[in-house]
């Protein structure tokens, strides 16, 4: 069940020169799971902008977005008190229930945000998650302390070695010989593929695609899976490891 609503911006601040965090106050009862997304209508732009939910509670949704084009640039210029027309509760999201005791969370770049609420929910369910975050360089790193404050083991990889371990998330997993029995991942396609190839462990991978509607009507974001065609926006963005076709 998805829903359209008006959300008031209560925070819009930069975490890095290109990554921003926005808090939106409004009805959140349609947000059911971590890993879902919202679709934001912006003045003067025809299509909505799909952004994953970083965190949510009974009154607000937090999103973290990277300024990459006109839509996100426009968002970054909005002020507290302004409101946005959003469709919320979109996508299937991660299933917290299926994880075993020691799940590994992997977030690459702006694929990291949905791991935050997921991590909180896994901890609340009595599980012991650990997290690997991957970035290109130290200047892009965000939310390291926020994750550490959740009391979990946090590993950081940067491609140029300017923060944490040098290399990709898969290098960190190998170097520190991380032990885990389930994987949750969100990030760029090459990262997801490398992770898939580096470990046989079962898990869930969140994918990205250009979308038309975001709620399953237009077939703009279809991908092939072992269980037939799926729309990233409603049947995803999270796919189970076993169904993925690269």
């Amino acid at each position: 069940m998805s829903k359209r609503g008006t959300y008031v911006i209560t925070e819009n601040s930069s975490l890095t020169p290109t990554v921003w965090r926005m808090r939106l106050a409004g009805d959140t009862q349609c947000v059911k799971r971590p890993g879902q997304f919202i679709n934001i209508a912006l003045d003067g732009l025809f299509l909505r902008r799909p952004i994953s939910v970083c965190d949510y509670d009974s009154q607000s949704i937090t999103i973290i977005y990277k300024v990459v084009g006109r839509g996100t640039r426009q968002m970054s210029r909005m002020q507290c008190g302004e409101s946005l027309d959003c469709l919320v509760g979109l996508g299937n999201g991660f299933s917290v229930e299926t994880a075993s005791q020691r799940p590994l969370l992997v977030g690459g770049g702006v694929g990291l945000p949905p791991m935050y609420n997921l991590c909180k929910q896994l901890i609340a369910a009595g599980k012991k998650p650990l997290l690997v975050m991957g970035f290109n360089t130290a200047g892009e790193v965000f939310y390291r302390s926020e994750f550490e404050q959740l009391g979990i083991d946090v590993f950081c990889a940067t491609a140029d070695g300017t923060e944490g371990a040098q290399g990709f998330v898969t290098d960190v997993i190998r170097t520190f010989d991380l032990k885990f029995d389930y994987i949750y991942a969100c990030g760029p396609l090459p990262m997801l593929r490398a992770l898939y190839n580096a470990s046989e462990v079962d898990g869930e991978f969140s994918f990205e695609e250009r979308m038309g509607c975001g709620f399953g009507a237009c077939m703009g974001c279809t991908c092939r899976t072992k269980y037939g065609n799926k729309r990233i926006c409603v049947d995803g963005p999270v796919l189970k490891r076993e169904e993925i076709i690269w």
Binding site: F46, E209, R210, G212, T222, C223
Partner: peptide
């Protein structure tokens, strides 16, 4: 995919 491209006042 990509199957969708944004345009001014359209898609």
């Amino acid at each position: 995919t990509p199957r969708i491209a944004e345009c001014t006042s359209g898609v």
